[in-house]
Design a protein around this nucleic acid. Structure first.
Lengths: 341, 341
DNA sequence: TTGTAGGCGTTATCAG
DNA sequence: CTGATAACGCCTACAA
């Protein structure tokens, strides 16, 4: 182990091992043209000294920092935090660190801000969460600035090396199948906001499944929210007012689904007896609300880890999957329909 | 503005301004011993070139990175994320960036891990969230390593320059006062886990207020949880079984309070008619649960901003408050007691 | 396969 | 007050 005092530098290692700095540098960077004996000798000294290359010096020389950035404007705190944990799973015990950078999608200066940020911090790469990950200009900016990037999304937004994706469309189809199997025929949809690819995918999956089952989908049974709780309350009220025969509602995320619970209570509609509700995300609120909510869960943490590995270990990047399966989490917010028309 | 191409360096500025690098450096670092005319001349060139000092080079020369670290093991995602936002409010448009570092309180290697982390990244300073902020060894480690730090906590854990605190004890007393004013006399407490200072403070505040009002506090009316939802469910069941005359329960955080809602429903107890419930944190679940929960909110984001400023702007640090008032957020989970003994 | 010289962009030292 | 010169710790180019 290292003694206390100033940390050993590459010079110390070189001197003690009796080789040049460059040779030590080659060992660190796994240069292939090194004699095995030399490598082992140097590695022994490195271990004895507890030497770790100084990231600041490397950053200066390489013009590139050992920092991964997390760009996000996701409204779901748990999603963001799970993602952070996943990234840290990937970079634990490496010299990398994770810097976070919330962005404001609505600011006209957003791209310029990010440009400055990337230029200043010289990040090794960035991980981009939805919905901002759907912005192609942002991806182009990363490419232009020579900054690695991986986007997380609910559709094939980019090439495999720049993407980890969940298949939202398929999952929502599965949700509808499940509801239909239980006997539901009049199902409402609270969709997410325009401009969110996830909202688009989820709606398309819903509509496709309804059509496949030959089920009627009147336009009043589709109401738009903005992914926030309150919009779910309002959307559910509107949907239930215009469409009293609906026996189930799928909301495009858990927060809006929780809003729908809220509206149902205000109207004296019992969940799930009078109305089945399904959300999307499997966020904590789904488990904590009453009755516990049936929803769709996706493996954020694993996706985050894979995304980070694509950036920091490009050699194994090929081995990292880009597609991640979601799963239906059945709890108690769904029951066979009781209502008769 | 800068033209495209390589970013201008201190050499470019020096050459064009006709001064030495060191003089430019002095301008950047606001050295007091500079002639006004020289300073202005250099500043003009800096503005023209759109020059920004390279943080990597500064990090190497100063042996200190312009990075703030966030050390946390807080189970509440929204709290952590709000804190991140607050820190970013403080460092927006500066060269600082925020790196996150979840820690595992239960790992025996935790302190060593953090030591390595600080040594490797040479952070400018760290912000420490509760409950890990209550660990004095960690604070000592920061001091030993010459790393700035600010702790966030619910009590006076450290000197003002290293602390932003909320006064949980007072707030819980206010909660009890509120409940008593409404007529409650038999109030239960679901306290947080041992080892959490916040849990301790909240319990002490509760007990002090009960005593002050001359109210009886049988030991069965105090149950311990672990700040998680499930522990709230169990604690409420136990409390209600052993103490059926309780008309109100204060839970030490919102998540456990949400668990208490859950238990109440399972027992057919109506909130707030049969049982009033109060939480702590004002996390999203408090607003989204039914009926909306009365709770205690504290200004995390402002606290985070102040904490970050204490680190990055030590000159104004004195001006930053260390004490932040919480406030009672009254919603619909509290009503006068209806039960008769 | 290894070593030497020089550079990355900034700050510290110390003389002027 | 200002400037030459030498760090800071690592990497690239080129030479041997």
């Amino acid at each position: 182990m290292a003694k206390s005092g100033p940390a050993p530098t590459i010079n110390d290692v070189a001197r003690i091992a009796g080789v040049s700095k460059k040779t030590v540098s080659r060992v660190i960077n796994r240069s292939p043209l090194l004699k095995q004996a030399t490598r082992e000798k140097v590695e022994k000294v490195i271990a004895e000294l507890g030497y770790t290359p100084n990231p600041q010096a490397r950053a200066l020389a390489l013009r590139r920092n050992f920092l991964l950035g997390l760009l996000h404007d996701n409204p779901n705190a748990q999603t963001v935090l799970n993602f952070q944990e996943g990234v840290l799973d990937a970079i634990r015990d490496t010299e990398f660190a994770l810097v976070v950078r919330p962005v404001d999608r609505h600011s006209p200066a957003m791209l310029d801000d990010i440009r400055n940020f990337l230029e200043l911090q010289r990040l090794y790469g960035v991980l981009i969460l939805p919905p901002i990950s759907e912005n192609d200009e942002l991806a182009a900016l990363c490419r232009e600035m020579g900054c690695g990037y991986v986007r997380m999304g609910s559709a094939a937004l980019d090439e495999a090396e720049h993407l980890v994706q969940s298949n939202d469309r398929e999952m929502v189809e599965a949700v509808v199948d499940y509801l239909v199997e239980l006997g539901h025929e009049r199902i409402g949809l609270i969709e997410g906001p325009a401009g969110f690819r996830s909202a688009f995918e989820r709606r398309e999956g819903f509509l496709a499944a309804m059509k496949r089952h030959g089920l009627d989908m009147p336009s009043e049974a589709l109401v738009q929210g903005n992914y926030r709780f309150n919009s779910g309350v309002e959307a559910a009220h509107q949907l239930l007012s215009e469409n009293p025969h609906v026996t189930a509602i799928f909301a495009s995320n858990d927060e809006m689904a929780a809003g729908a619970y809220h509206a149902a209570r205000e109207r004296g509609v019992d969940v799930p007896t009078d109305l089945s509700l399904v959300g999307f995300d499997d966020s904590p609120i789904a488990a904590h609300i009453w009755p516990p909510m049936t929803t769709v869960g996706w493996p954020i943490r694993e996706m985050a880890k894979a995304a980070a590995l694509k950036l920091v270990a490009p050699d194994t990047a090929e081995a990292q999957p880009s597609n991640f399966p979601a799963r239906l989490v059945t709890r108690n917010s769904v029951a066979p329909p009781a209502k008769k028309i």
